[in-house]
Design a protein around this nucleic acid. Structure first.
Lengths: 128, 128
DNA sequence: CGTAGTCGATTACGTGTGTAAACGATGGAG
DNA sequence: CTCCATCGTTTACACACGTAATCGACTACG
């Protein structure tokens, strides 16, 4: 009976910072996550713990007991996250078409010459 | 003394729907906005009025009295909105580089052949 | 004139988010 | 054994958001 698809809950911006730490290296303890992010974001360890709990609740990270504490690891791949977020934006702003997004980036000079070269290379590859 | 830059407040998803209506045609009354969006979103007129007020507070739309009621028009250009939102995403997910976004879209088959052709054309134009 | 409809403004209320303090268990230092 | 540091859990609280009902002013119809 197909146990409800359980569509992944949305990950907030602050939560994403925690995910990034885990995507970089995992499993990590709450401490270690904090060491990675508390500096840049000016958070307390408690804040990180809260975010980790919420991510566990959202099934975005898994826990594994390690003595008295937990080790946390991502349950969703970064590329999946990136994919759904990009898609969401393209849908919301460009009617689902990627070309207008590209056009916009190009026009607003958000593309460096490096970017352009890289994209050309990708295009060539796509056509092969 | 450069009256604080007054950095534009964030426009939420529901608010964007209202903006879209105004970007399509303006100025509009609250009624008219509702006629455009209440259907698809299942909103009541009151909801639209609330969103309009919030957008006015955020300085994203301007009001102009018209007898007993108001006419609303956008104060920010859609292309600006689209620009900052795209940039925000590219920053958040791709470290500010646009090429990886493109690569991701390409890999995840979010690019149709049409998209690709269009992008090629754009590239050609960029280089000229 | 009264009164019903219509406007914008005010208030409401549940949920998510950012940020954290308080709490209770527990394991290691002395 | 006792006490302190450290875990994860629970509770907190302000603000944003989605969604809307209610209110006070005004006007147009009867």
């Amino acid at each position: 009976m197909a146990a409800k698809p359980d569509q992944p809950e949305r990950i907030s911006e602050a939560e994403q910072a925690v995910m990034e730490a885990l995507w970089q290296r995992s499993p990590l303890t709450a401490q270690e996550v904090c060491e990675t992010v508390c500096g840049e974001r000016g958070w307390s360890l408690n804040t990180v713990k809260t975010l980790l709990s919420r991510l566990v609740a959202k099934q975005a990270v898994a826990t594994e007991p390690d003595g008295k504490r937990f080790l946390y690891s991502p349950r969703i791949a970064r590329s999946d996250y990136v994919g759904t977020e990009s898609r969401r934006l393209v849908d919301r702003l460009f009617g689902g078409r990627a070309a207008p997004l590209f056009a916009h980036l190009a026009k607003s000079e958000a593309l460096t010459p490096d970017d352009i070269a890289e994209i050309e290379a990708l295009l060539k590859e796509l056509k092969s």
